[in-house]
Design a protein around this nucleic acid. Structure first.
Length: 399
DNA sequence: AGGTATTCACATGAAACTATTCTCTGAGTTAGG
DNA sequence: TAACTCAGAGAATAGTTTCATGTGAATACCTGT
């Protein structure tokens, strides 16, 4: 045991692979963003009026995950602010990620977060929402600036709340005399705009912009560029970059995924004590990413959610290959609840939980109609059986 | 045979409820002048 | 009298329940040939 640990420590301490792992991390902002010149130019031209002190149009940016939306937004923000500072323009840009749980997934919290960024202070709960609004307006008014707010993953927020708060925000301008607000919404759901209230849609979508996915060649180029900073000479074996790019291209051209793959491949190779990254490391990394994601989700999930999952797994064990339906899951789940002395949820709720699992990719649920025999979900487990035991362990330990 | 109408087994939606967390307020209490 | 404490009111949220309504197609039921 000790010897093994020492081997690992030695291998990692020797650090035979990375020179600067940081450039592969998602938080890293490169100086130039390849293949996004056109989009950045467009955003810049849309926002340019801000430099004259005029209110730029609201902007809606659409693009799948890992297509450089957020990165570009950061980039433009920095450039604009640089410019504004030089000419001491009254401009302020705030970025807010609506996906962050516990930070920005309700109307109240979004406002609270904005207020905090503007230097105000609000309690995390206990205040009526309209008071928070007033406070926000007051603060913005005091700033006497043009305020551009970037809402990343805005669809998440609207899904949890209603689109009312967007409406309120877009209307805020009429209540402001000293300041003006522009909104930039970023989403990876194209249908999102259509699902909005027409009033909101027309005002948020004054300008629209699409970030198309990277293709495999572009991904490769991005990886090559970064890898020169990240790794020592000649640690990449032939085909590693290609493989990372190929995997990521399969995931709708997700550059973030490509970078993660490369970084984790490196970490795995390093852990083995080798000084080269091989294509098999990429395969391992790919699996690891999937596995870790699943484990994380399950660990964070509430007890009832876990029990439902356990129910699905148990059914899968007993009747191999056959289709699993909601009714069965509910039955098995109820038994489990009684066994572990946990209160049983309604079928209604379990139905929702199953839908959530589908969203999270833990199961694959398809709606099928069996005619006379009703409609139900056709459920298939999509957790790789390699980690079944770990999953069960997690759930059972959690009682 | 061909066409309708039923019917199943859930899905999906909306509203309302519950427990918990947090702030704010004001009454009552305490300690010092 | 100023400072402190502490219970209760009010608000928001997550997770749920209750009630209501929706739905795709295999089957049952006609109908006229």
């Amino acid at each position: 045991m000790g010897a093994e640990l020492n081997r690992i420590f030695d291998a990692v301490a020797k650090n035979s692979i990375f020179t600067n792992k940081f450039v592969l991390q998602t938080s890293y902002t490169p100086e130039n963003i390849p293949y996004r010149d056109k989009q950045i130019e467009q955003v810049a031209s849309i926002l340019a009026p801000a430099l004259r002190g005029d209110r730029p149009s609201n902007l809606f940016i659409y693009g799948q995950t890992g297509t450089g939306k957020t990165l570009s937004a950061y980039y433009i923000r920095d450039e604009l602010m640089k410019r504004a500072k030089d000419q001491s323009l009254p401009l302020r840009i705030e970025y807010l990620n609506c996906k962050l749980k516990k930070v920005a997934d309700t109307e109240y919290r979004i406002l609270a977060e904005l207020i905090k960024k503007l230097g105000g202070e609000v309690p995390s709960t206990g205040l009526p929402t309209d008071q928070v609004y007033n406070k926000f307006i007051e603060l913005v008014e005091k700033e006497k600036k043009l305020l551009i707010i970037i809402f990343d993953e805005i669809d998440q927020a609207v899904k949890k709340i209603s689109d009312e708060f967007l409406y309120n925000l877009t209307r805020l301008n009429s209540e402001l005399s000293q300041s003006q607000i522009s909104l930039i919404g970023i989403s990876n759901d194209l249908k999102f705009l259509d699902s909005l209230d027409p009033r909101v849609r027309s005002s948020l979508g004054e300008e629209e912009l699409v970030f198309s996915p990277y293709n495999a060649v572009q991904l490769q180029e991005i990886l090559r560029e970064r890898s020169t900073h990240a790794f020592k000479e000649a640690v990449l074996e032939e085909g590693v970059l290609q493989k990372c790019a190929a995997y990521a291209a399969r995931e709708h051209g997700d550059a973030r995924r490509a970078l993660d793959l490369l970084r984790i491949s490196g970490e795995l190779a390093e852990r083995e004590g080798g000084d080269k990254i091989q294509t098999r490391h990429v395969d391992m990394a790919n699996e690891k990413i999937d596995r870790d994601k699943i484990i994380d989700v399950i660990e964070a999930a509430p007890k009832q959610f876990q029990l439902v999952l356990l129910g699905v797994m148990n059914i899968h064990d007993t009747k191999k290959g056959d289709r699993i339906f909601t009714g069965e899951v509910y039955e098995v789940y109820s038994e489990l609840c009684q066994k572990y002395r946990i209160e049983v949820l309604t079928q209604r709720r379990v139905s929702d939980i199953l839908a959530e699992m589908d969203m999270l990719g833990l199961i694959n649920a398809k709606l099928v109609s069996h005619g006379r025999h009703g409609r139900t979900r056709d459920i298939r487990l999509s957790i790789p059986n390699k980690i079944w035991n770990r999953v069960k362990e997690i759930i059972l330990n959690n009682l």
